[in-house]
Amino acid sequence: MSTPKQVIVIGAGIIGASIAWHLVKAGARVTVITDSETGGIATPNSFAWINASFGNPEPYFRLRKRAMAEWNRLAKDLPGIPLTWCGSLCWDMPAAELEAYAAEHSSWGYGISRVDREQAARIEPNLVGLPGFALHVAEEGVAEPVSATRALLADAERHGARITAATVTALVETDGRISGVDTSHGLLSADEVVIAAGVGSPDIAATAGIKLPIETPPGLIVHSRPYKKLLNGLVLAERLHMRQTAEGRIIAGADFGGADPGDDADATAGALFAAMKAMLRDADGLELDFHTVGYRPTPIDGFPIIGRAEGADGLYVAVMHSGITLAPAVGLFAAREILDGERDPLLKPYGLARFAQ
């Protein structure tokens, strides 16, 4: 019987947690290293929309659609994971663009319905100022990000993973291969190292001479105090995206990535919350609790970086903005590639080598 592969996963956000969980389930010995609270930096500040929606070329749509299916598989394998297929109601672009998006994605097999004002009111009866035309996608949903991450890490730990609080100071190279990491608590060795540290990934990769071309735009999201149920699903209105969480908070950003906080984040948050409240019926008692500013790890071409780093054997990279949607598929595909050398065809466009071309 072969010795289980030892893998270090750097990062305890939704991507790192999913990769760790899938690796452990496949028989690897896994250590997760995190220097922050569960969920990391980007995950707790996510809008947490699971979708294969507009703005995606077909190959990326196919990856995201597969990831949506993998959320259902993950929910069966890990009962209690906070997943809801609540649907979305969208009118955040001109009608002609909405029509073009609906026609294109419908031809790819996405379940988009065109709805008028009366139909939209039945879907979201507490919205004020509904448009005459919107799109409804019943198959889209949300996963409460921190709770989902905690569930993955806790189950991974139950199956033998180690969760270590430490700061990674450098990747360690031995005989031309990444052989572990140097941390604030000392050296750790492994057969493979996975960088899934979100906004912290470029600095870690740079210690091995690897450049990750990533931007980290900020996104401000407002969070209400828990309130009675006002929203059934995701609402994607012009300059205002919002949803109600499992604990009853209504969260909103200027789009799903959040608002630009500007020079005065408190003022931006106040204006955004006022716009959200004005759009809701029976919201007189709704109160702003807090706002968050998250920094999204976004590769410069907008698409994920998933795969082994060329010129650095033993190193795997998984960094992306669409972490909530992609997490279960990335975890599954990464585990297969790390342990069996099998790269899923859906990942073909998303290797790091594309930036060298």
Rank of each mutant, 00 (worst) to 15 (best):
E310T: 14
A267R: 15
A100S: 13
T164A: 11
V172R: 15
Q119P: 00
A17D: 01
P213M: 10
P59E: 02
D182S: 15
K76H: 07
P145N: 00
F290S: 12
S322Y: 07
I112L: 13
G39N: 11
V142Y: 07
G111A: 15
G219I: 10
G219S: 08
V330H: 06
W85D: 03
E215V: 12
A267N: 09
R150H: 13
A100N: 11
H291I: 11
A52P: 11
D203I: 00
G180F: 08
F290T: 13
N126E: 13
R249C: 12
M93R: 14
C86L: 07
P4N: 01
E99I: 08
P94N: 04
R243Y: 13
W21K: 06
A103I: 06
R249L: 04
W49N: 14
V235L: 04
A283K: 09
I14R: 04
P202V: 04
G351T: 08
V7K: 05
E144L: 13
I204C: 02
A197H: 06
L286A: 03
C86S: 12
G13S: 01
I41Y: 12
K229V: 08
A161C: 13
S224R: 07
F273H: 08
D289N: 12
L347P: 06
L220Y: 07
T84Y: 08
A156R: 04
L89W: 11
E99K: 15
V193R: 04
G40N: 10
A208R: 11
L346T: 06
L83P: 00
T207Y: 05
T43D: 09
S201H: 01
N56F: 12
A12M: 02
L135I: 07
A208D: 09
S2K: 11
C90D: 10
G285D: 11
A95T: 08
M276T: 14
I338P: 02
D340H: 14
G141R: 05
D191C: 01
T268Y: 03
I19M: 04
E99L: 12
